[in-house]
């Protein structure tokens, strides 16, 4: 592999089990994928699929049970705490609730200046100038520098959270349900902002969301998770127009306006099993309308349907 083709992020066999009363919660199970430089990978799935844990794992905000994450050739798991702290400037995260990640007692200017003072050692005046420049990047004027988070609307707060994430000029951003709490008209605004920043700065983005239409709007590729495992991963247009895994099809048809009204929509029975006791073999088989006896035996491997389009399903005979 040449240096240019080397991915920015390479995740190998990452697994996270959380200790619990009784059997451990298997939040993420043997997940491997790559994100290219400047690429947007959407991560979709329902509650309990492990998508948020996965976002924290790739930034090493939680320690994996097993598995590795390489960022631009640097093995994250090998870094000591102080090294990791310095390294974090390359990788940032934004969350669903920007209010929870902004200190209510800090003005926006102070919140934006803090990371540049820590990472770049800028003085007070230089840091304030940089804060104003960051606000401008997310479409807010310098007059907002001395205001507190409570004075802003939800969409504005998410812009501020994005500005703060950009403060250290990262090359990779994890956005965890970053627009889920916003009204649709503001969702579009924030998604377009993220997309234009991603294009301008060549940022790579891992965009985690339960909302398939938002993922479709922003992603180059998407990965579908169910009970901690990858069901399917493919270029975005291919995934939405030619889903190869029954779960992906069910998700697409269940999405509002995504399926035909009436009886011919695929409606899954039951609910997601507990991640403490996932089904044997294919974890989706208990809700899959196409499951066979064999599906209970082996964990299906991710195999290529087409170049770049992988699915974890042994049924190759289905026309979805």
């Amino acid at each position: 592999m040449t240096a240019a083709a080397e991915p920015l992020l390479a995740v190998r066999g990452i697994t996270k089990h959380f200790a619990a009363k009784g059997p451990p919660v298997r939040a993420v199970q043997d997940v491997s994928f790559e994100i290219g430089r400047g690429e947007v990978l959407g991560v979709v799935g329902e509650s309990g699929c492990g998508k948020s844990t996965l976002g924290r794992l790739v930034l090493r905000l939680v320690e994996p049970t097993t598995g590795t994450v390489a960022f631009d050739g640097t093995e994250l798991m090998a870094l000591a705490a102080a090294e990791l702290r310095r390294f974090r400037r390359h990788m940032q995260m934004i969350f669903q609730d920007p209010f929870a990640s902004l200190n209510p007692r800090m003005t926006v200017g102070e919140a934006l200046a803090e990371p540049v003072r820590f990472h770049d050692g800028l003085g007070r005046a230089a840091a304030r100038d940089r804060a104003a420049a960051l606000l401008a990047q997310v479409g807010l004027g310098a007059e907002h520098l001395d205001r507190y988070p409570r004075a802003f609307s939800g969409g504005q707060r998410q812009r501020i959270a994005i500005a703060r994430a950009l403060a250290t000029a990262p090359r990779f951003l994890v956005a965890d349900e970053a627009v889920s709490a916003l009204d649709v008209s503001i969702q579009a605004e924030v998604v377009n902002l993220l997309k234009s920043l991603q294009e301008t700065f060549g940022l790579a983005l891992m965009f985690i969301s339960h909302d398939l239409s938002v993922v479709e709007a922003i992603s180059d590729r998407a990965m579908v998770l169910y009970l901690g495992r990858v069901m399917e991963i493919a270029p975005i247009d291919d995934l939405y127009s030619r889903p190869a895994h029954p779960y992906t099809l069910a998700l697409l048809q269940a999405a509002p306006g995504g399926g035909k009204r009436g009886g011919d929509r695929l409606i899954l029975k039951g609910e997601i099993p507990s991640p403490s006791a996932p089904p044997s073999g294919c974890v989706f088989r208990t809700r899959c309308p196409f499951a066979l006896a064999d599906c209970a035996r082996d964990i299906p491997r991710l195999t290529a349907v087409r170049p770049g389009h992988l699915k974890a399903c042994i049924r190759d005979d289905l026309t979805l």
Partner: peptide
């Protein structure tokens, strides 16, 4: 704001209000 496209249709950008 949240365009829906049919299978095979070209992807549309989200247009905020």
């Amino acid at each position: 704001c949240v365009p829906r496209q049919q299978r095979g249709e070209k992807r549309r950008r989200m247009t905020p209000i």
